[in-house]
Design a binder for these strands. Structure first.
Length: 229
DNA sequence: GCGACAG
DNA sequence: ATCTTGTCGC
C-alpha cells in the first residue's frame, strides 16, 4: 500500500479542471485495437470515499486475463482532492488510482475502470484521462447511462445497443447477463469499442460487472476501513 | 431558469 | 459514492 498526496499541479477548481480536459483531450488514441481478450493481464481500478474523514482509498487488482485469477493487488490512501462534479470525476479519483497503479510490480496490461471514457460531455471521461496520463490501454465500464440515451439491447448476454449522444455513438449498452440491466461500455485509450465490449464479456462469466471491478471494489472498501481504524 | 447527472 | 441484514430465488 502507498500513501499519496495530491499532485501540486492538480486543478484547484472546476474552471481549471475544464482547461486540463481541453488540453489533454487531443492526446487520446482511438485507432489502436488494443490487446486481444483472454490473454495477458487485465487490471481493475476502483475508489471508495469517506467524505467525513476526507479520506479516499483506491485499489488496483491485476488478473490473469485467461483464468481471471488474481495475480497482484495494490492499494493507496489519500485525501479527497476534488468534489464530485458530473463530468469531472477524474479529478476526484485519479490521484489515488495513479498511486495504486504505481505500486504494482507487474505491468497492468489493459486497465478497466468504473465510469466512462468517450461517453462524456467533452469526450474525455475518467478512462480517457487515465489512459492519456499512463499511456496504457484503458476502457470504462459504467453501471449507469449518465446523460446518454440507448434502446434496450436484446435480453441475452452479449446483446448490445449504441449508447448515444445525439447521433453519435459514444459507447455501448452491453448485456452481460441474460435479462439483467446492461452495463455501459466506452473506450478510454488505445482500445476500440468492439474490443472493449469483447473484453467486458470475457470478464463477466458469472456476474453483471467485470471481475476486475468486483475485486477492485471490495479491495478499496477494505483499504478504506483499515485507513479509518 | 430548472432539473439531471459516471462515482 | 454512501446510509444498510437478511432473505427469496435460480
Amino acid at each position: 500500500m502507498t500513501i499519496n498526496r495530491t499532485p501540486a499541479d492538480w486543478p484547484a477548481d472546476e474552471k481549471e479542471a475544464l482547461a486540463v480536459q481541453d488540453a489533454l483531450r487531443g492526446r487520446v488514441v482511438l485507432d489502436e485495437a488494443g490487446p486481444p481478450p483472454g490473454t495477458g493481464l487485465v487490471t481493475g481500478v476502483d475508489v471508495a470515499y469517506d467524505d467525513d474523514r476526507d479520506l479516499v482509498a483506491a485499489a488496483a487488482v491485476v488478473l490473469d486475463a485467461r483464468t481471471l485469477d488474481v495475480v497482484e493487488e495494490a492499494t493507496a490512501v489519500g485525501r479527497v482532492s476534488f468534489p464530485y462534479v458530473p463530468g469531472l470525476l477524474a479529478f476526484r479519483e485519479l490521484p489515488t488510482v495513479l498511486a495504486a497503479l504505481d505500486s504494482l510490480t507487474s505491468g497492468p496490461g489493459l486497465v478497466v475502470c468504473d465510469g466512462y471514457g468517450r461517453a462524456h460531455p467533452r469526450r474525455f471521461g475518467l478512462a480517457s484521462h487515465l489512459g492519456v496520463l499512463t499511456g496504457l490501454p484503458v476502457i470504462g465500464v459504467a453501471k449507469n447511462p449518465f446523460t446518454f440515451t440507448y434502446e434496450q439491447p436484446g435480453e441475452r448476454r452479449g446483446a448490445s445497443a449504441p449508447l448515444l449522444a445525439g447521433e453519435e455513438e459514444v459507447g455501448r449498452a452491453l448485456r452481460t447477463r441474460d435479462g439483467v440491466k446492461p452495463v455501459f461500455v466506452s473506450v478510454g485509450h488505445r482500445v476500440t469499442l468492439d474490443n472493449a465490449c469483447a473484453h467486458t464479456l470475457a470478464l463477466t462469466p458469472r456476474y453483471r460487472l467485470p471481475e476486475t471491478t468486483r475485486h477492485a471494489d471490495s479491495l478499496c472498501r477494505q483499504a478504506l476501513q483499515e485507513a479509518s481504524a
